[in-house]
Design a protein around this nucleic acid. Structure first.
Length: 590
RNA sequence: GGCCCAGUAGUUCAGUUGGUUAGAACGCCAGCCUGUCACGCUGGAGGUCGACGGUUCGAGCCCGUUCUGGGUCGCCA
């Protein structure tokens, strides 16, 4: 039987000298200094400890052990004659009396070197994720994730929220993303769906009288991945509050998140309550994005009236946006690269000019501007050595391109970004409706569950032609941190009458509401509380805190971009018998 | 589905205008080394240059197709 260790590989100190100990772990390295002197490095979850081998029998035994085998070492702790101040255990070493191999690593060569696994090819890392995770650097992100989740749970519970789990096998939802479907063996031809979010369940909990709900909820969406979006599955800190409005929800997260960000984040400064509130339309106008990075002090200015008729062809009849950077000393090469990068990311061109130290407009498109030089200087408030980046196009395209330009300038021109902090803001007053690009018809902008600002009254006005449906905003909000959309939430529409009216405006009716959301509609007909909620993405939160650029770095067993688990071999073919039981006939084209 | 980037030793990469036997570092193997800690020194093994086709006297390099991976747009109530 395996006898337990007395100490971990991270805890022995100079005070332990003289003690008989047993340590266990992975044999990370053997430094063979001579024929009868070698240093063996043992690594476990907690750290590394050095053992020193000084007799020839033990030397030859150690030489026969492959790296990354698990071993146990029993012996005496002693003070090192040459200490290593860079290691917590660097003052001591273990002199082994007995070394035992617990689990032999059968390979001399690993797919990658454990301590350099982050440099290895990503597909290889994912296939051998259990080895990748042996790397303390990789492991630390998972530990961080555990700590953050535990802190979120604790804080939410302290705020009076109950953690309630909701079904994983549920009904397919007609709106939103593509569902993951699960065939129902006992119901031929029918399917469960994995939840895209516990949205309807949490709203039902509100109608059942649970006042404050939360859940670290797994969510499943069959959509394509991104660097910050894991394919298939992800986790949300899902929460909902009864008899609550937008500000009530804001107050909870403004209380819960900053201490956790400050404690566990790579940067230990987080904005405090209240977070800045920015309307969707202001955010698009000032920052060129609905997820502004407020660490950047640059803003987007409107220059349509000033420049659209200046004679420069791309500006004619277009919206023109400007980003002004004072004290600009970057080279022409830098500017050309910047414009090229903006075009790659946004798909639209960026233009520029400068005001030099002699008060002359120079570079870029300046020759189109000389006639109205004074007006431009006054309107954009230009000082010598100002750089002006310009974008144009339809309003939304000009805004978004300017947003990309702003972000790149902020990140690359020194002095415009205080990067080492977490800067939160709320984006509020999202439009309720939009004209669908494909259909050309009025459609819900986000989801149909949100309460319109103005309630039944404003919807009635739209119906009578007295109000513009595109001007209606919803009590719908995003939480943004450092340019990352952490969360969407809303005050929900709990009134069946308003719900039906909201649907009628997009050409649907009561029957559609009942058909699409039967449980919620019926439940709301039995007396529902006004309620509101939000669901910050746990993965993205941890990614921000860890300072990682890829979401896969903070997920224990991530899938690759095409939603495959290379380690487990998922998705995989199944036995014909399984398919028969599920009443499934495959129709796969080669 | 569109676009961009990458694919050369176990790993990370270099490879000039198309020209002899495709290199380096780390890792691996062997030897040396009595205080290493990214130990050091010497030597060695290790390659379907992602695949297929084309151009050429000659292709890792040029052209075409394709596969794989990543990024991005679409998509993500």
């Amino acid at each position: 039987m395996f006898q337990s260790r007395t100490h971990t590989c991270g805890e022995l100190r100079i005070e332990d000298a003289g003690k008989k100990v047993k340590i266990v772990g992975w044999m990370e390295n053997v430094r063979e200094v001579s024929a009868n002197l070698a240093f063996v490095v043992v690594r476990d979850f907690y750290g590394t400890t050095q053992a020193v081998v000084q007799n020839e029998d033990m030397m030859s035994f150690v030489k026969g052990i492959t790296r990354e085998s698990t071993i146990s070492i029993e012996g005496e702790v002693r003070e090192r004659t040459s200490k290593n101040p860079n290691l917590p255990t660097g003052d001591i070493e273990v002199v082994p009396e007995k070394i035992e191999v617990l689990g032999r690593c059968r390979y001399n060569e690993l797919p990658f070197q454990i301590n350099h696994s982050r440099e290895a090819d990503e597909a290889t890392r994912l296939k051998y994720r259990y080895l990748d995770l042996r790397n303390p650097e990789v492991k630390s992100n998972i530990v961080l994730r555990c700590n953050v989740v535990a802190a979120l749970r604790k804080s939410m519970t302290e705020h009076g929220f109950l953690e309630i789990t909701t079904p994983i096998l549920t009904a397919s939802s007609p709106e939103g993303a593509r569902d993951y479907l699960v065939p129902a063996r006992n119901h031929p031809g029918k399917f469960y769906a994995l939840p895209q979010a516990p949205q309807q369940f949490k709203q039902l909990l509100m109608t059942s009288g649970f006042d404050r709900y939360f859940q670290i909820a797994p969510c499943f969406r069959d959509e394509d991945a991104r660097a910050d979006r894991s394919p298939g599955e992800f986790y949300q800190l899902d929460m909902e509050m009864a008899f609550a409005n937008q500000e009530d929800v804001f107050a909870v997260l403004e209380d819960v998140l900053p201490p956790i960000f400050a404690k566990y984040g790579k940067y230990n400064v987080a904005s405090e309550a209240p977070f800045k509130r920015i309307s969707f339309s202001d955010s698009m106008e000032i920052y060129g994005s609905d997820k502004p990075d407020l660490r950047i002090d640059l803003v987007v200015r409107d220059a349509t009236e000033l420049l659209s008729d200046c004679g420069f062809e791309p500006f004619a009849g277009s919206t023109v946006k400007a980003v002004v950077v004072p004290d600009f000393t970057q080279t022409r090469k830098f500017i050309d690269q910047l414009c090229a990068d903006v075009e790659v990311v946004s798909g639209n061109k960026a233009f520029w000019f400068r005001l030099d130290e002699n008060f002359d407009l120079v570079g870029g498109i300046s020759k189109f501007l000389t006639e109205r030089k004074n007006a431009i200087i006054a309107a954009l408030d230009l000082k010598p050595n100002c750089f002006v980046g310009l974008t144009s196009g339809k309003k939304l395209a000009a805004q978004k391109t300017a947003g990309v330009l702003r972000k790149m300038l902020g990140a690359s021109v020194p002095g415009h970004m205080d990067a080492e902090r977490y800067e939160f803001c709320w984006i509020v007053d999202f439009p309720m409706y939009e004209i669908g690009e494909e259909s050309g018809e009025l459609e819900f902008c986000h989801n149909p569950f949100s309460m319109p600002n103005g309630g039944l009254e404003i919807l009635d006005k739209v119906e009578k032609g007295e109000a513009d449906p595109l001007a209606i905003t919803a009590y719908q909000y995003d939480l943004v941190c450092n340019g990352v959309e952490l969360s969407s939430g809303a005050v929900r529409n709990h009134d069946p009458e308003i719900m039906i009216k909201a649907f009628e405006l997009v050409g649907l009716g009561e029957d559609d509401v009942k058909a699409k959301f039967p449980a919620m509609y019926n439940a709301f007909c039995y007396g529902a509380p006004p309620h509101a909620g939000i669901a910050p993405g746990v993965d993205r939160m941890v990614m921000l805190l860890a300072g990682e650029d890829s979401i896969r770095e903070i997920i224990p067993f991530p899938m690759n971009k095409t939603a495959q688990d290379l380690m487990m071999g998922a998705p995989s073919a199944v036995e014909p018998k399984q398919l028969r039981e599920l009443h499934i006939v495959l129709d796969v084209k080669e």
